[in-house]
Amino acid sequence: MRLTLRAVWVLYRRSLRELVAVGPQTLVAPLLVPSFVLLAYSGLFSEVFRRLDLHITGTPGFGSGSHYVQYLIAAPIVMSALLATASAGIGVAVERQLGFYDRMELSPLGPSISQFGRRLADGTRIALFVVVLSLVGWAAGAEIANWPLALGITVPMAAALSVAWGGLTFSLCLRTGSAEAAQAVTPLFLPVLFFSTAFVPLALIPQLLRPVVEYNPLSAVCDAIRLAYSGQIDASALLRSAVGIPVIAAVTQTLVIRAERRVRQR
């Protein structure tokens, strides 16, 4: 076990160094796009919601005198965590092309350890993204009542979501050995995010779609993060996230295991 942890640590550091070596371009999609969404959407819709004079009890951003950015702040963080999953897929595709994946496959620990190290590095990167996006949200007018609480809940949750969701991109890229597959599959999160409470509260969603939105695991994650930025702990949302994220991980990890088997049968 100690040796396995050491291997994970070494591979984790390797992935971090790789991120530094590749340079700032790895930050563009998962940081700039969500920042743009945060600034553009909050500017665009805050006035709309203010004129509609919508008040939803217990919902940040929809109370008296509250700014929509207070509600929106969870969406770009979740979006960033999901966009960052592309790098895990691209990474394994490149490893397959280089033969580095085979090198790890040849070892007694196998490639799963490397995958874990790489995805932990992605989680670390997401911690940086969360801090930057929080600062962007704060600059845009969001009131962050308790920074340690907000980051303490958001960072691990966003990292866990990224690691869990990342299995989808990872499995496809592993199976195909193609980095382009990451580009094809990464945007799939967008409809899932739109059918969640990321952008508007459940009360404003058409009745027909409410069951989908309510049971969407991303809704729970967004709700928990949003309340944490308002200085509250939403036990229900945290519990639903604690169930939802492992369910996503179980599904995507099954795909990863199947992809690994497929690679061995090549």
Partner: peptide, 10 residues
Amino acid sequence: LQATGLDPLM
């Protein structure tokens, strides 16, 4: 193996 399997960034 035929491919050296080295990571060019390491």
